[in-house]
């Protein structure tokens, strides 16, 4: 197996708000191997973005705090690094791509300047080299007429091009880990296809790892090799993409798969998950999904650990063994459609 690049161990992140302290991430564990893509999928408020900001140590200073856990990157716990060393990790070792490139790019600098600044800073290139390098990066991410585009300001570029600039910037220092937070959500579907295609190609070329944070199961299926499904601040299912999609073993994952209409298969009626995502102030006792779960039993008033369904495939459900049978009994439909 490939080398372990990042390991998140028992991460707890809280936010201090006016109404009290809430835990947005409660005990998240996962690892990312060299060259692979891990998808973190979940609905709004599940803690997927907070997890990524915790890894980057970019939580809002006044309100956000990591209270527990380790983030081992290349064998070192980066939570213990002083801020000035962390600055070298950010951008150079771990780079981030945001959902809305318009707000992530500085509007008063040209696109080229922003890429050049990164490499000047981290790779110590001269101004001229950095500029040429920026042009090269723009070409690499498929921006047409890169010599001209480096002089454009972010607002002069389309959404798709801006996201390409973000990718160019993120890859410019050849980081070993990329974190992309909903990088295609703001884009049109044809542009999303372009960007995903590009990312796949570049990851292979650079042999970089990617954490893809998204709400879209389709995007995960397209780009990730392994997936972590998050719900209410916890990972509820974790494993190889094919296994998780074919053999989902947590009721939430199953529910999510039944709830989304698919472009390739028609169903008469969607099966929705009742209720709403719990808010952080009012978490249900025990398993956090128990108030919406069709299979909840008394045992679910206790918090289940992550059970190993099969090697490398984890599920946070007391009934992980019987869930498949329960499903079959229920509607005779095999969710995995396999």
């Amino acid at each position: 197996m490939a080398q372990k690049l990042l390991e998140v161990k028992d991460l707890h992140t809280v936010f201090h708000t006016e109404d009290g302290t809430v835990e947005a991430v409660s005990g998240v564990n996962f690892e990312v191997y060299q060259g692979e893509t891990l998808g973190i999928v979940g609905e709004s408020g599940c803690g997927k973005s907070v997890t990524s900001l915790s890894i980057m140590r970019l939580l809002p200073k006044q309100t956000g705090e990591i209270t527990k856990g380790e983030i081992i990157f290349k064998g070192k716990d980066i939570l213990k690094l002083p801020e000035n060393e962390m600055r070298h990790v950010r951008g150079k070792e771990i780079a981030m791509i945001f959902q809305e490139p318009m707000t992530a790019l500085n509007p008063v600098y040209t696109a080229g300047e922003q890429v050049a600044e990164m490499v000047e800073l981290h790779l110590g290139m001269s101004k001229k080299d950095a500029y040429n390098y920026a042009v090269e990066m723009f070409r690499k991410v498929g921006i047409p007429m890169p010599e001209k585009r480096v002089y454009n300001y972010p607002h002069e570029l389309s959404g798709g091009l801006r996201q390409r600039v973000m990718i160019a910037m993120a890859l410019s220092c050849n980081p070993s880990l990329l974190i992309a937070d909903e990088p295609t959500t703001a884009l049109d579907v044809t542009i999303q296809a372009q960007v995903l295609d590009l990312m796949r190609k570049l990851l292979k070329e650079y042999n970089s790892s990617l954490i893809m944070i998204t709400h879209d199961l389709g995007v995960v299926a397209e780009i990730a090799q392994r997936v972590a499904v998050m719900y209410a601040g916890q990972i509820v299912e974790y494993g190889d993409v094919v296994t998780v999609f074919k053999n989902p073993s947590h009721p939430y994952t199953i529910g999510l798969m039944k709830a989304i209409p698919r472009p390739d298969v028609e169903v008469e009626r969607l099966i929705s998950i009742e209720g709403n995502v719990p808010d952080l102030f009012h978490m249900p006792k025990g398993c956090r999904f128990n108030n919406r779960c069709p299979y909840a039993i008394d045992k679910c008033m206790e918090m289940p650990p992550l059970f190993e369904v099969e090697p490398g495939h984890l599920s946070r459900c007391w009934r992980y063994k019987e869930i498949k049978d329960l499903l079959k009994k229920e509607d005779g439909v095999d969710v995995g459609r396999g």
């Binding site: 296809a193 879209d216 299926a221 397209e222 999609f245 390739d264 396999g338």
Partner: peptide, 11 residues
């Protein structure tokens, strides 16, 4: 457009 739409099935 159809072709660009991601399918939630890795297989």
């Amino acid at each position: 457009l159809l072709s660009a739409n991601p399918i939630p099935d890795p297989t």
